[in-house]
Design a protein around this nucleic acid. Structure first.
Lengths: 254, 254
DNA sequence: CGTTTTCTTGACAGGGATCAACACTAGTGG
DNA sequence: CCACTAGTGTTGATCCCTGTCAAGAAAACG
């Protein structure tokens, strides 16, 4: 059981056969050091990078040198939406920490998906969630203040980590530097620093030694207008199709 | 031939049968007045709204009343990515002008797609482009100034309209009010007004009576760091798979 | 340990927000 | 045909959130 399979279980009641196939597909693991590229513009999308351990991101660099992180990839995340037609990757994908990842064979995966409706549902669900995350990012950048953006991000990260099977009750890793947070949230490192201090002073979070603890969940959610619906955490139990309920563990407070 | 089919021709060399089926699917047309919702949160995604005439958008409203437009839908655009698993729509989709639209049957479309690889490619391409547009939006909101955001948006709109078969040589319709532009670009109406004037004074655009003319294409692109690659305008001719080249008209300067 | 990265703090500037009028347009109804 | 109204565009004055510049601390690292 790895983060990838753990996460997909949230989207559909995977069969044992599904899990076996998916685990097999992620058997061979590659590594990337912090800061290294996992994919660069022009790469073929025939093989899909999947993060197993560590954090990565997709980013673009403007002509004036400014950088914007478009998407954060946590353990279990696929860096390209499943099944997407062959194309060339447009953005950079880089490791933010030391990363273990597999590159799924798009062809093998697609073949299996044709046989397994549950697996298909899980992968579509993953795409749906990824899309929603990017849309939430648009809303944050467009209409939230610096502190609100930080709060929203922290709420999202905590929930996403739990979806990948990483416990967060006693806090979670937050390996991003303030420069990286700034590139992700469309801010300046200096301002990230000050906004973080505001959140700390308000007693909402504590963040030191790359470790994040959310002290006041509800208050932080209220402040940052965080509504976890968009992550569809328990889709496997609540999908419109009425799939059988077979998951033992759920993420209740979402 | 409508905007929908016109647009999909950019993504794959559709056969005559493809076009017939797609035209048939969009035969029955519904209308929505300006400002009316086409879909609201909770709607089922079993039927996919496709814009045939007019402009629409997907938006979210925060608890504090602020609105952010997440995506602009122009003629030919599908408001939900094709084939996405059944789910409930999370955002509002509203008409920005009087709109003519069809609601494709997801089931019928999927059945046809299983038979037609070209149609499948076209729909995947559409999803790819839609995703790229949202990512470009993230970059704009995060790292571009007000005037740059406006410039980038105008460049994008002009090209997207041409992809849908709407000529833009002598300018194009720009029905958005300054309030709507503000909600789309994460700005204030007042600031949109002033930034527009800057662009006009610089001789880059003219915008009056809901009609936009880009006076200096290259300069506007340079200013706003607009690189049309992400729209994959001529994907049908350049896809990695090496599909046959069969389109007669291309959009050269992209 | 020295070196580099990251974090923190201060002073200051500026892009964009806010508030408030006023003009212009377009639709509406008498 | 003309008031009336509501939405839209324009402008000015002012504020403040965030960016910029710069320089120390602190932590990470080899």
């Amino acid at each position: 059981m790895n983060a990838f399979v753990n996460k997909l279980c949230r989207g559909a009641p995977l069969t044992e056969a599904d899990k076996t196939v998916l685990l097999d597909l992620t058997r061979s693991v590659r590594r990337a050091e912090k800061g290294r590229d996992i994919a660069v513009p022009g790469d073929s999308s025939r093989s899909l990078p999947v993060i197993l351990r560590g954090w990565a991101c997709r980013y673009q660099v403007l002509a004036n040198g400014k950088r914007q992180i478009v998407m954060l990839y946590l353990p279990g995340d696929m860096c390209e939406p499943f099944g997407l037609l062959p194309h060339f990757i447009d953005d950079n994908i880089a490791a933010l920490t030391p990363v273990s990842f597999s590159t799924l064979s798009q062809d093998v995966l697609r073949t299996w998906v044709e046989r397994s409706p549950t697996c298909k549902q899980a992968l579509w669900w993953d795409l749906l969630v990824a899309t929603n995350i990017e849309r939430a990012q648009i809303v944050s950048l467009g209409r939230r203040s610096a502190a609100e953006r930080l709060g929203h991000l922290f709420c999202e990260i905590e929930l996403r980590l739990r979806m990948a099977g990483i416990p967060t009750e006693s806090g979670c890793d937050m390996p991003l530097t303030q420069v990286e947070l700034a590139d992700l949230l469309g801010l300046t490192p200096v301002h990230v620093n000050r906004s973080l201090q505001d959140l700390r002073k308000a007693g909402l979070i504590s963040l030191e030694n790359r470790r994040l603890i959310i002290r006041e969940h509800q208050e932080l959610r209220d402040l940052s207008d965080f509504d976890p619906c968009y992550l569809h955490v328990n889709y496997a139990q609540t999908s419109p199709e009425g799939w059988p309920h077979s998951l033992s563990e759920t993420i209740d407070d979402a």
